[in-house]
Amino acid sequence: MISHVIWDLGETLTTPPNGKIDKKPLTAYPEIQLRAHVPEVLETIRQMGIKQSILSNTATSDSAIVRELLNRLHILDKFEYVYATQSELEPDIPEKPDRIVYDHVLEKLAIEADEAVMIGNTWDTDIVGANRIGMHAIWLQNPAVSVRKDFDEKVSMPPWILPVWDMESVPKAVELMMECSQSGDRE
């Protein structure tokens, strides 16, 4: 049964910093804002009884910096756990889609992969990474933020992957995944 949503941060919940990568701490970029409808969607998911966390590949910002940014954006209280990889400029540091970062978050949340849904804008990291470990995923396919480089990557189903075109569609997609998950539990 799905009990957690794990969100990507940049281009999913927030706009990117100028230059697209955090060469300074994310809190040093006043232009970073929430994408449209994010507060309402986070609240709707909270009201569904689902816990929420962040798993974000970042360049220089650690988890504490991401929490500061979320606090500035008035949404920190929506998240049970926040993890930033600080990996985008360091090729030797694990990042999504590496299993180790997903396993780290699942361990901190004390849940199994099939109890979570990963929501992100990047097929190659957010969606494929989640799928490889058995986690459901929602791919935010808004053409302005969606990224896919590898068109040959194979995925398994289940776990379920649902595409959505806008943030407002995410709660319904989570509901559908919960229904699929529950019907699978009964079989």
Score class of each variant (00 low, 15 high):
135 M>T: 07
135 M>F: 10
136 H>V: 06
136 H>G: 04
136 H>C: 02
136 H>M: 03
136 H>S: 15
137 A>G: 04
137 A>K: 01
138 I>W: 08
139 W>K: 05
139 W>P: 06
139 W>R: 11
139 W>F: 07
139 W>S: 03
139 W>Y: 06
141 Q>H: 11
142 N>G: 03
142 N>F: 01
142 N>T: 04
143 P>A: 09
143 P>L: 02
143 P>M: 00
143 P>C: 02
143 P>V: 06
144 A>M: 15
144 A>V: 13
144 A>I: 11
145 V>F: 03
145 V>L: 01
145 V>M: 01
146 S>V: 10
146 S>W: 05
146 S>Q: 08
147 V>A: 04
147 V>N: 01
147 V>K: 09
147 V>R: 15
148 R>N: 09
148 R>E: 13
148 R>W: 02
148 R>D: 00
148 R>F: 00
148 R>L: 05
149 K>G: 12
149 K>N: 11
149 K>A: 12
149 K>D: 05
149 K>W: 11
150 D>G: 00
150 D>F: 15
150 D>K: 12
150 D>R: 13
150 D>A: 07
151 F>A: 14
152 D>C: 12
152 D>V: 06
152 D>E: 12
153 E>P: 04
153 E>L: 13
153 E>K: 13
153 E>G: 05
153 E>M: 13
154 K>R: 11
154 K>E: 09
154 K>N: 11
154 K>A: 10
155 V>A: 07
156 S>L: 14
156 S>W: 11
156 S>A: 07
157 M>G: 06
157 M>S: 15
157 M>R: 09
158 P>H: 06
158 P>C: 03
158 P>F: 02
159 P>I: 00
159 P>S: 01
159 P>H: 00
160 W>F: 08
160 W>N: 08
161 I>R: 04
161 I>C: 05
161 I>P: 02
162 L>S: 02
163 P>W: 00
163 P>Y: 02
163 P>Q: 02
163 P>D: 04
164 V>D: 01
166 D>M: 09
166 D>L: 08
166 D>V: 02
167 M>V: 12
167 M>H: 04
167 M>K: 04
168 E>M: 09
168 E>D: 13
169 S>M: 14
170 V>Q: 04
170 V>G: 05
170 V>E: 05
171 P>H: 00
171 P>T: 03
171 P>R: 08
171 P>C: 02
172 K>T: 10
172 K>H: 12
172 K>C: 10
173 A>T: 09
173 A>D: 04
173 A>R: 02
174 V>Y: 04
174 V>W: 01
174 V>I: 10
174 V>N: 01
175 E>T: 11
175 E>F: 00
176 L>Y: 08
176 L>H: 09
176 L>T: 10
176 L>S: 14
177 M>W: 00
178 M>P: 04
179 E>N: 08
179 E>G: 07
179 E>I: 15
180 C>V: 08
180 C>R: 14
180 C>P: 02
180 C>K: 15
180 C>A: 14
181 S>R: 14
181 S>P: 00
181 S>Q: 09
181 S>Y: 00
181 S>M: 03
182 Q>E: 10
182 Q>T: 12
